[in-house]
């Protein structure tokens, strides 16, 4: 899976690159507007991650150029401006998602994977990892042949974990993923804790294995190697 990341802030760019590479993506990166146009011209990408405010041009123009090529590239805008106009214009031009800075790398990763799933949708939309299979259309979750009954939040949580397997997810990132960034997080953590407890219990009850590890005080890690 090939991804082009266009971001002029060098350190942000390298963080994104590093996270995505560890997820097994092939990453092309640039901070330059013209270089980005050039890369789009030459190569075919599965996904474009683009910052709107670039020193030498507007990210929206890169999206326009890409769309004129009529490719099937998924587009995610990352912008420091949480301006509704930009968001709407971006979506109108054909971008698939919009992420406001600062964002969590795990969130970006989850968005890319969700986008890829939608793009590569072919009849059945079942995601299988290890012994767990998730039907994204019917929201049905199975471990082996045994069905799990999950609440909506638990389901979202599982999808988020499954997109970021073997990664430490902080409770802050989980809170924002589940409830959005406007929620005052201070009291969300207790709820995350109980949701994770419930999800963990449901998986353990049907498989005997607990895939959700607590990593010191940092957060949670979903390891499903043992579930194979």
């Amino acid at each position: 899976m090939k991804i082009l990341v266009v971001e002029d802030e060098k350190e942000l760019l390298s963080s994104i690159e590093s996270y995505l590479k560890s997820e097994g993506f092939l990453c092309e990166t640039t901070g330059d507007f013209n270089k980005a146009l050039e890369l789009i011209d030459i190569y075919e990408f599965d996904c474009l991650i683009v910052d709107l405010t670039l020193p030498s041009g507007n990210g929206l123009d890169i999206i326009r150029k890409l769309k004129s090529k009529n490719t099937n590239t998924g587009i995610i805008i990352i912008s420091a401006k949480n301006a509704l106009d930009d968001k709407l214009l971006g979506l109108e031009l054909g971008s698939d998602d919009y992420l406001t800075k600062p964002f969590y790398l795990s969130e970006l990763n989850a968005r890319i994977k969700a986008l890829m799933r939608r793009r590569n949708f072919n009849g059945s939309n079942i995601k299988i990892f290890g012994a767990i299979s998730i039907d994204l259309n019917t929201h049905q979750v199975k471990i082996g042949s045994q069905e799990l009954t999950l609440t909506k939040t638990e389901f979202d949580l599982l999808i988020y974990f499954s997109s970021n397997r073997n990664k430490v997810l902080t409770k802050e990132a989980i809170a924002e993923h589940l409830w959005g960034s406007n929620v005052d997080q201070a009291d969300s953590f207790d709820f995350i804790y109980s949701h994770i407890k419930n999800l963990r219990k449901k998986i353990t009850d049907s498989s005997g294995i607990d895939p959700i590890k607590t990593v010191y005080g940092l957060g949670y890690k979903f390891i499903n190697n043992e579930l194979t």
Binding site: E9, E11, S15, Y19, K101, P102, L105, A173, V215, G219
Partner: peptide, 27 residues
């Protein structure tokens, strides 16, 4: 302030993923 904050946050996120963190470093 936004950008440096984003950088710090993302670097810490990456640092967390490192496999050989001890408890003390984690805290």
């Amino acid at each position: 302030i936004q950008t440096p904050l984003a950088i710090i946050r993302n670097k810490l996120e990456l640092l967390m993923q490192s496999n050989n963190i001890q408890h003390e470093e984690a805290s």
